[in-house]
Every structure is written in C-alpha cells, then in structure tokens.
Computed example of a mutant assay.
Amino acid sequence: MRAEEAAAGFSGERLRLARFRAGLTVREVADRVDVSHAAISQYEIGRTRPTPAVLARLAIATGVSAGFFVFNRRPVSARGLDGTHFRSLRSTGRAGRASAWAWSELVLDVAEVLERHVRLPDPVLPMRSLAPDAGRDELADAAEELRSVWRLPDGPVGHLVRQLEVHGILVARLAVADKGIDAFSHFQGARPVVILGSDKGDAARSRFDAAHELGHLVCHPDADPGGEQEQQAHGFAAELLMPRAHMARVLPRRFDLGAYARLKQEWGVSIAALLYRARTLEVISDAAYRRAVMVMNRRYGRRTEPYPLDQPERPALLATAGEVAARSGIGIDRLAAECCLPLDDVRAIIGDPDPRPLVTV
C-alpha cells in the first residue's frame, strides 16, 4: 500500500501500537520523524493525520509497513493495556508492559490474516466472573466447569497449551514476555490470547503460568493488575492442575522426595507446588511444610528442583495454520506482507511446533 493511501485511511491507535511494538516514546518517534512530539500525540489521538511523507517516515521509524496504520485493519483491543492481565506491577514499568502488550495485539493481527486462508478453532471458554472475596469453593467450581466444558480427563490435564489452542485460545511464546513479566493474557476482541515467556526451561513453572492466565480468562473479564485477581488466578491454576479430590488422596502425609517426584512427573507440576497444595489442603501441617521447604532449599537451592520435566509445552496452532496456508501457496513472506510486519516478527509469533531437526531414512 502506498503512503498516500495509508495516510487517507490513517488510524492513530495503530500508530500507538506500532510505537509500543518498537519500544519508543512519543518524543523518540518525533525525533526520528522530524516533527514535534505534540504532532505525534495529535496523530495518536486522532485529532490530525500525517501527510504521506510523514507517514512514510513513521513506518520507517517504527519498523512496519505503511499499510499497518490503516484504520480498516483489525481494530486494536478497546481497553488496551488496562484490559490486560499482568502480574505484579512492581516487576516492570508501564513502558515494558506496553511493549509486551503490543506483541499480543500483533498475535491477533497475524491470526486474523491467517484466517483469511485457513480456519482456526472457534473460541470455547466458559466465563465465571468472580468477586474479589471469592473463596476456594468458587475457584474449584470454576475449574471444574472448565474441565466439564472442555471434556478434560478426570486427573492430569495433559498438554495444557494444546488444550488452550484446541479451544480457540491463541498462545505464543515470545521473548517480550520475559524480564519480569513472565506471562500475560487478555480477551478483548474476537479471540483470547495468552503470551508466555520464551526463556523458561522450567516446564512445570511454565505450565502453571499457562493455567494462571487461563484462570484470568475464565474468571476475570475486567483486569485488575496486582490485586486480588492474582491470588485467585493462582488458586484456579492449582485447582485445575491439582484438583483437591485427587490430591487429598494421593499427596503423602509426610515429606517423601521419591513420592513427590513421581507425582511431579504424573501431574506436570513442581514439587514446590505440590508441597504448597498439600499445605493448603491440610494434608500436611504448616510446620511440616516449612521443614520440607527447608530440606529442598538446602539440597537444591531456591530455583532448581530434581527430576525436571521435559521441555516447556510449545504452542502449535499458529505454526500449523502457517504450514496449512503454505501448502495452499500462501507462504510466510505473503503473510508478513498482508500483516504489514517484518518477516522476523511473523516468524517469532508463529513459531515452530517442534524445533528439533527431522530425521529421515
């Protein structure tokens, strides 16, 4: 798309999204484009539009194509950053969260373009809005309803990321979710999206992150970062991955590393999570819990555990959709062009469902 056409259909919210993607401030964009920072602000709120020449410079400055700024593309999620579920607000600044959130919007952009060529699963997500004072029983009911609607097995849920994707939730592992953010999610448009960090070798912790974000999507239609919702999402994740009816029967009444290691492998959760669950369900006392944690810390440190699980679960929906589109002649170069994004961005978002080299005989 030519700059003249893009300028005629210019969307300020798409400029803000491009700026967040690039990790730039208003002033930094203004300096690169050689206009005042007030002009950039006016563009973003929709009060004025850039000339074709300025728009071309905006595209270069933010690393996207001119067509990215056009208003008839997918609308940016209405509640934006404030409608997104982040963890502690102390771990990263607003600029870091804005950059991460922008990538979740790019995931939605890529999915929309893919759906021009292939069909993705329709979202299936039961909603159980919880009040701030909701207790354990309500969290258990919400997790049980999800299990019922998704027809999950009566026991370990298996590949959790695959379950999210089968039920129409977009999942991506991106480096932008690292450095204090870990994971985040939102459901503000046609599809829910979950972003997981890319650098976690801890499969158990990563699965818990996915379950935590699923808890937000099910229980919290309105985001309240840093509030009671975080504890509720933790509680939901525990109920989903370690349902009380099973855990009350199988958790050891005393600390037995071998028994906990076997449960870790069977249920796909960390020994630390199992110990905390045992304490929460009063299978062990607070004193026994503290002793077990001290033993684990003394033997293995605070950040490592024995008997690691396999590699973290990898999303496959977008990568598989890309492969299907490619078989129809719609390669990743064309997808990137239709998204008006750099090829590397689309590759990072789509990912690879199995990065291991293929052995042929």
Rank of each mutant, 00 (worst) to 15 (best):
R2W: 01
E4G: 00
G9V: 00
S11L: 03
E13K: 15
R14S: 03
A18L: 06
R21K: 13
G23I: 13
V33F: 10
D34K: 14
A39S: 15
Q42C: 03
Y43R: 11
A53F: 11
L55E: 09
R57Q: 13
A59I: 09
A66G: 00
A66C: 06
G67H: 11
V70N: 01
F71L: 03
D82I: 01
G83L: 06
S88A: 11
S88F: 06
L89K: 02
S91K: 14
T92A: 15
R94M: 10
R97C: 08
A111S: 15
E112Y: 04
V113M: 09
L120D: 08
P121L: 13
D122N: 11
P123H: 11
P126K: 03
S129Y: 00
P132T: 07
D133E: 14
D141N: 09
G155D: 04
V157R: 04
V157N: 04
Q163K: 13
V166G: 00
H167D: 01
I181Q: 00
D182G: 05
F184I: 03
H186R: 15
H186V: 02
Q188T: 01
I195G: 02
I195T: 14
L196R: 12
S206C: 09
A210D: 09
L214Q: 04
D222K: 11
Q229R: 07
Q231E: 13
Q232V: 09
L240D: 12
P243R: 06
R244Q: 05
A245E: 11
R254N: 06
F255S: 12
D256C: 11
L263T: 08
E266L: 14
A273T: 15
R279N: 12
I284V: 15
Y289K: 04
R291Y: 07
T304E: 14
P312C: 10
E313K: 05
R314T: 15
L318K: 10
R327W: 08
R334H: 06
A337V: 04
E338C: 03
C339G: 00
L341A: 04
D344W: 00
I349F: 06
L358N: 00
V359P: 01
V361I: 14
V361H: 15
